[in-house]
Design a protein around this nucleic acid. Structure first.
Lengths: 351, 351
DNA sequence: TTGAAAGCGTTACCAG
DNA sequence: CTGGTAACGCTTTCAA
């Protein structure tokens, strides 16, 4: 291999090497450090210098190499965002908003998607290898995993899940409150028998919602409660409704589903499979406030998560902790918004 | 600032510096190059060496630094994925599947989200700075933008959009065919007057679908066609239906919406706003095959995109081109699947 | 199979 | 304000 061949390896399609700060420096007739400074924020560079460098730079199509910068700076300017199939981050707008929030601070998003929330282990190694500056996760961590990232001094913010009594930052929707509202509305409107459609067993969110509902129901003296479990999907919601009725022998007065998708499934099954009228024969409520919940055919009574405020908060909490690692953990819970839709027979506000 | 303070900067919470291959080498009593080799694939290292190094490594919690590796290797092992609000990549499962596909090849996803498809310019610079190995985009590029990434020798795969006559790789759903199917079914079932609900003007996907439908309608001799335009959202779908009827003076026999969300909006508005029965009074069809399309209340006639095969193809096409930059561009179009739902009055298959 | 040494493209420190 | 030089943590020749 001759010399030409050797120097070929970094050439682009037109035969030029990808320009570095040295190339720019040479063309501009200045030092490489000068070029570096021109491309920094609080740099000290004279106007003349800046002009010459810039001219040379875009003549060569120079772009600072963020990888190299990260190496020396010890800041990758990337955060890991972990989503899993059943997460709320999974809702499209959340990811888009998050990415944009981070982007405003010059931070890029490295995405990690989990098939199951329990697969976290495999991706943590990756996040650490890529030296992400922070982690925003909608999947739970085991204590060991938490310790691992903690030892690496990487700040973590949990989205809609919070480790019991652990000293970690989190942003969540106040689901206890939400379920309390829903149960309150239903009981006050005279519903006496309840079905609960809970989420999959490995979902903390699902468990929380179910427990809160059960708690509130029992507080209000309701004892006729039947529970079945689904996977947060529409189909499973339909299935759950059938199983619920079979288990009880007859439909309950109201069904509380752990999320909107299953609630919608319940509505369809109640109507199609059992010829019931919603809400005249049975009330059905969900949780989340997803798009289809407000479709006219369902008009779901639900609690809408303040997604925008939550993502906003999550992003800034993480960025704050990247910039100031000494900041102590913080847990923020946002109230949802009760949507009194037509899928439940509720007392009118004025009654 | 004394020496202690200086050396502090890279220490972790327990006071140790983040371990490097040098630290591992020292502890294991071998050279740094040896450590490097142990953590590579086709490395040559004796079993004894490997053991000693590994022992030292996990004693120190050593993790190879992917950033540094990327710098020397000239491979970041990251690809950029660009989504915009109205894209199909926007559908949750697509992102998850993509990320997993890439992950299998050791490639991470750097996510870029656009508010509008036309904002591409701002993110291209970022992708280049981070030296991504490839780009998968569900947003259109201008010719200049395409040239920019081309000059940087970064392979690009377009998802569901293809630049007219440009020499680029793309994966898409065959929308012409899909619209042809839909129109064919409707015309054959006797529908004579049509409404078309098109997408936003800056969506290539929307335009393609509309043009294909119009084409096929005209081929089949249909002339009574009214067109209104929405933004791909549910609410806009409802609105569009109203405008359609107003514009025509009366409801058409059938409505062809550019996507499912708007089709569902049309159904709700037809029922609620105009007291029409779907499909007895009017047939409504969409495109995409999103989740809610199959909800019992809508049971939409639509064309489902083979999302899984498309993401699979997109990921492997990009990876192939990263590993072999000489590969010529390739355009792959996948047929969708016609879903003959209850939202349209169609000829039965046997009739 | 192993080790020494030369980069990769930046930033950061320190004189001038 | 500017330039020289030493890192950053790794991979990759090249000899031994």
């Amino acid at each position: 291999m001759n010399k030409a061949a050797k120097t070929d390896k970094n050439k682009d399609s037109t035969g030029r090497r990808r320009a570095t700060s040295y190339d720019v420096a040479e063309l501009a007739g200045v030092s490489q450090s000068a070029v570096s400074r021109v491309f920094q924020d609080g740099a000290s560079a004279s106007k003349a210098m800046r002009n010459r460098v810039m001219a040379a730079a875009d003549k060569l199509g120079y772009r600072p190499n963020a990888i190299a910068r990260g190496l020396i700076t010890q800041r990758s300017n990337m955060v890991a965002v972990v989503i899993s199939k059943i997460t709320n981050l999974y809702y499209p707008e959340v990811l888009v908003q998050l990415t944009q929030r981070f982007s405003e601070h010059g931070v890029r998003v490295l995405l990690f998607a989990l098939e199951h929330e329990s697969d976290t282990g495999t991706v943590i190694e990756q996040m650490l290898q890529f030296r992400v500056d922070g982690i925003l996760t909608a999947a739970i961590f085991t204590p060991e995993q938490l310790e691992t990232v903690d030892n690496a001094d990487i700040p973590v913010v949990f989205y809609n899940r919070t480790l019991q009594d652990q000293l970690v930052s989190s942003v969540r929707c106040d689901q206890e409150e939400g379920e309390r509202w829903l149960v309150g509305e239903l009981v006050n409107a005279g519903h006496k028998t309840f079905g609960i459609v809970e989420g999959p067993p490995d979902s903390v969110v699902g468990i929380e919602r179910k427990m809160s509902a059960l708690n509130e129901l029992s507080k209000m003296g309701i004892t006729d409660i039947t529970t079945v479990s689904g996977d947060f999907g529409y189909e499973t919601g339909r299935d759950c409704f059938t199983r619920l009725v079979e288990k009880r022998g007859s439909p309950p007065d109201a069904v509380i589903a752990a999320n909107d998708a299953m609630a919608i499934g319940c509505i369809d099954e109640a109507r199609e499979g059992f010829g019931l009228s919603v809400p005249d024969d049975i009330s059905i409520v969900g949780f989340d406030g997803i798009g289809p919940a407000s479709y006219a055919a369902y008009d779901l009574t639900t609690v809408r998560q303040p997604v925008q405020r939550m993502t906003q908060a999550a992003a800034s909490m993480l960025i704050e902790r990247i910039e100031n690692p000494e900041l102590s953990p913080e847990k923020r819970a946002f109230s949802g918004k009760l949507i009194r839709g037509g899928s439940a027979r509720l007392r009118s506000k004025n009654g």
